[in-house]
Simulated assay, not measured.
Amino acid sequence: MDTTRDTPAAPAIDIGLDAQDRKQVAEGLSGFLADAYTLYLKTHNFHWNVTGPMFNTLHVMFETQYTEQWTALDAVAERIRALGFPAPGSYAEFNRLSSIAEEPALRESTDWREMVRQLTVGNEAVCRTARRVLQVADEAGDDPSVDLLTQRLQVHEKYAWMLRSLLQ
């Protein structure tokens, strides 16, 4: 029995944003998601591999940050889906879309200061991407995306400040 003929098709998306605006915001959010995921992965990596006199402080700090970041990734991906587009979800897509370069493998001698420096720079990159996409979403009248990006911007600015403070 073919039930596909009896099942009504999903209606077209009609959330008060035209298709072109939704597409532009979703593309921007995809780049933001790629940056945020790359930063998440780097933060988790450093949590696992930090050594030295700042071990305990940084191990805990990095865990707090990557745990918060992990949860936020889902909200960004779900916003892309709500706009009607597939969220990127592979390393290849994230690498292509991200403005944050993947670092070479850590050496045993990688200093905690270098880890903190890289995470400071990474959080600032996420902030710059958030600001660009926020402008696109604002021009489109996409208040939920503006709200989401504003919240993420506040978090990553705080992380950048906290990390930078360790190096001063």
Rank of each mutant, 00 (worst) to 15 (best):
M1Y: 11
L148P: 03
F55W: 01
A75I: 11
D138F: 03
I80G: 11
Q65V: 01
G84L: 05
W48D: 00
V25S: 13
A10P: 01
Y91P: 01
Y37Q: 11
A87V: 08
Y159D: 13
P86G: 05
E78P: 07
S165C: 12
A137G: 07
G122V: 04
E157P: 04
H156E: 12
G84D: 06
Q151A: 15
F85K: 10
V50Y: 00
V50W: 00
T150R: 09
S145N: 10
F62N: 02
S30V: 07
A75N: 15
M54N: 15
F55G: 00
N56G: 12
A87G: 05
D147P: 04
A140D: 01
G89N: 03
W70G: 15
L97V: 06
N56S: 13
S90H: 06
L29P: 12
L17G: 13
Q24G: 07
R113S: 10
R5H: 15
D35G: 04
R96F: 10
G28C: 12
L106P: 02
G122H: 04
Q69P: 00
L163T: 00
Q151P: 04
R96H: 14
S30M: 09
R79H: 06
D35P: 02
E78V: 09
L149C: 07
H47A: 01
D6Q: 08
M54T: 14
E27F: 09
A12N: 08
L167E: 01
L167K: 00
A10V: 08
M162I: 11
N45S: 12
H156I: 03
A36G: 11
G31N: 13
K23P: 05
D147E: 14
N49M: 02
A26I: 08
R152M: 14
T129C: 13
L73W: 08
D147K: 07
L58E: 01
C127I: 04
D147I: 07
W48M: 00
L167P: 01
Y40L: 08
T7W: 09
A125P: 00
V155G: 11
E103H: 04
Y37K: 13
D147Q: 11
E103R: 06
R96I: 05
T7M: 09
A125G: 03
R79K: 04
L148M: 11
R96K: 15
T43E: 00
P144L: 02
R22Q: 08
A10F: 10
P104T: 12
T4D: 09
E114K: 13
Q154V: 13
R131W: 06
H156A: 04
V133R: 04
A105W: 06
P11Y: 07
L153K: 02
P144M: 03
T51K: 08
P86Y: 09
L163W: 01
